[in-house]
């Protein structure tokens, strides 16, 4: 293949990474923005979403689409409920003290990860996509008789991959509408702006916190259900999304939703392209160092300043 079609392919793969990453990172960003809690266990909620999706899909007979649809609904709900329970039993009792909650979520990370290892085992397992038609992408080339359309070998995608990008975009719009246009979003933003004042106005801040924590985890789980027909479910799969979400949230500005989405697109696309041309390990080293330096020198993030 020539460079051109190759780049198109890398961009497409990058767009899928970006879509899933945006969902995961928005969950992390919401939790940090509203609760000021850095949730190290976020990647494990992602992993749990994928594992639950596999479990639901394999226990339902019939067409794979039925199982997948059920997973799409129930995996995020279950993970969200678990996160709400964790919030009420652990984080609430720590009074949301930033440093102690980090230590507690590290503990939570190991608990979820290791229990999954015990229950689900160390194997990677696939979930069948509900629909998966191959699409070839045409490429235009200047030949002897002017421009002509060709179909390069290997250049193509599947309907499912495109659907993932579309679904992620739709969910993000819904989250945005929820935050800016609904009453519950207003309450969340009020709590984020000033916890004490919100409490004084009769907002049940603790219930809002539990809800936000559950919602953030559910978003991560939803992202995982979307990606699991492309990647496989594995008990260690939470590490990368956690690291990438951190990078995205920090570069996008802590707690800023538009910044987070923008950064997710940027990181997702460049991750796809950089990994093609350089070693993935080198790409990760550069990304982690970049994040650390951004935190040191520009704590408000590269697109910081704006707050939603």
């Amino acid at each position: 293949m020539e460079l051109g079609p190759y780049l198109v392919l890398a961009t497409l793969e990058g767009a899928i990474t970006a879509a899933v990453l945006a969902l995961t990172a928005v969950g992390l960003s919401l939790v940090f923005g509203v609760m000021r809690v850095v949730n190290i266990a976020h990647g494990e909620f992602f992993m749990l979403g994928a594992v639950l999706a596999w479990w639901i899909a394999q226990s339902v007979a019939g067409h794979p689409a039925i199982g997948f649809a059920l997973a799409l609904i129930f995996a995020p709900l279950l993970v969200g409920a678990l996160a709400v329970a964790a919030d009420m039993t652990i984080l609430k009792r720590l009074n949301y003290d930033p440093e102690r909650t980090i230590v507690a979520t590290i503990g939570l990370l190991y608990i979820i990860q290791q229990l999954t290892l015990m229950g689900y085992g160390p194997d990677a397992r696939p979930v069948e996509a509900p629909f998966n038609t191959r699409l070839a992408i045409p490429w235009f080339e200047r030949g002897a008789e002017g421009w002509q359309m060709i179909w390069p070998w290997g250049l193509g995608t599947t309907t499912y991959k495109l659907a993932v990008i579309g679904a992620a975009a739709m969910i993000l719009c819904a989250v945005w509408a929820l935050m800016t246009r609904s009453r519950i979003g207003l309450v969340m933003r009020a709590t984020q702006a000033d916890r004490e004042m919100a409490l004084a106005f009769g907002i049940p801040v603790e219930r809002v916190y539990a809800l936000v924590f559950g919602f953030g985890a559910a978003l991560a789980a939803l992202a995982a259900v979307l990606i699991v027909p492309i990647q496989q479910a594995h008990y260690l799969m939470g590490g990368d999304p956690l690291l990438l979400s951190f990078i995205v949230v920090i570069i996008g500005g802590l707690g800023s939703l538009p910044g987070t989405v923008l950064a997710a697109v940027l990181i997702g696309l460049s991750d796809g392209i950089i990994s093609v041309f350089f070693s993935p390990t080198l790409a990760k080293i550069i990304a982690t160092l970049l994040v650390a330096l951004v935190l040191v020198f520009r704590p408000q993030g590269l697109f910081g300043g704006r707050r939603t």
Partner: peptide
Amino acid sequence: LTTAYMLIAGVALVLLTL
């Protein structure tokens, strides 16, 4: 007892902070 021995570390971390 189990290969998931880091579970102990996780539980210990949560209990200690709590």
